[in-house]
Amino acid sequence: MSADQSEGPLAGVPAEPGVGKPDAILVADGVIRRFGGLTAVEVDHLEVQRGVITALIGPNGAGKTTFFNLVTAFDHPDTGQFVFDGRPLGRLPAHKVARRGMVRTFQLTKALSRLTVLDNMKLGATGQRGERFLPALLPLLWREQDREIEQRALDLLARFQLDKMAGEFAGTLSGGQRKLLEMARALMVEPKMVLLDEPMAGVNPVLTQSLLTHVRDLRDLGMTVLFVEHDMDVVYDISDWVVVMAEGRIIAEGPPRVIGANPAVIDAYLGAHHDAPTTDAEEQRRLDDAEAVIEAEAGARPKGRR
């Protein structure tokens, strides 16, 4: 990839917030979400290009996860709307958004602990006849389909090197394996677009490489990927386009190298009074520092009780 210019479908697209894309699969328009007095998300316009990997970055509290929730209908905006694959999402419930072909993962992995790895996978398949109450009572009606699903699940598990674990409870998997499982499970839905919320968080470096490969594979299989990530190396490494959020707004977007040099982005992360970092390593260190502080605050934020 060149230093300041994007290649492929996004070649020639100017690096400015809200810029139009040649073939947008997801369009957000005037999306605002408030919690009490706090405006968590305020996105005037955002387009996500089909078939590429887009990274969503920004300091914690920038509204990235809230934005994810809004896109996937786990939460609804106060105003504004999303258009996915040419059709407005309106107030569609989350499960219908997923069935339209937009599947997400979660920041805290949601492996279904007391289901086997294989069952976790098979759950992801859509249009299962045996998921209706009455047909479920007659295995004859769904056994054939179930077998096909199982085969597809096993193939995917093999690709993610989880096939040996197929019969184990998902709760026995390590943190990294759970991330893999969650990604593989999302693929069972056969999505057009995958949203990954911090796919590399808490994963050891060895597994990170493997995860990165899988994310690239998704794009090569024709899927669109939008992911939230903090590790700038990862972002530079695999993303084709980067969107930067701060305080709920989109403050910049563009190819990774352009974004890395954008003073507004550096300000957002480090505060306006810092000098621009001299080296990548220096920047990384500062980002890590900033993040540690933000993380500590986030840990103290109220969590939904359940």
């Binding site: 499960h95 219908k96 979660f106 007391r114 045996g130 179930d146």
Partner: peptide
Amino acid sequence: RSPWGRVLKSIREDEEAARSLGKN
């Protein structure tokens, strides 16, 4: 043992995960 039961169990484990996979 059917896919229907699998959905119920997935809701028990984590209903948001089930929802994210397109289950009502």
